[in-house]
């Protein structure tokens, strides 16, 4: 069994963390990277986490937002105030 974590798996785990925090806490890219390192330990590194974030953004599952600093959040739902 391989110890490697795929970038897609990390992206899914990140998405879950971001979704769970939505409306409660704004997460920065560094926050989700730290969460992944807590979750997967040495099996993930910053480079992999950067790629996972890129997948989330480019697939439009998440968006960057700016409220004084930059955050990653779920896209707003139709009709929701931005």
């Amino acid at each position: 069994m391989s110890d490697e974590v795929s970038v897609e798996e990390v992206a899914d785990a990140m998405y879950k963390q971001i979704a769970d925090a939505q409306g409660l806490k704004k997460l920065k890219p560094g926050d989700v990277t730290k969460m992944m390192r807590e979750l997967y330990g040495d099996r993930v590194d910053k480079k992999l986490c950067k790629l996972a974030i890129r997948i989330l953004i480019e697939s439009e599952r998440c968006v960057y937002t700016y409220f004084g600093g930059s955050y990653i959040e779920l896209p707003p739902k139709e009709g929701e105030e931005k």
Binding site: V63, T65, P75
Partner: peptide, 16 residues
């Protein structure tokens, strides 16, 4: 200002 605006894939460069 702020919020959610940008171009696909980028997190900077557009100020809402």
């Amino acid at each position: 200002h702020g919020g959610i605006v940008g171009v696909l894939g980028y997190g900077g460069g557009v100020i809402g």
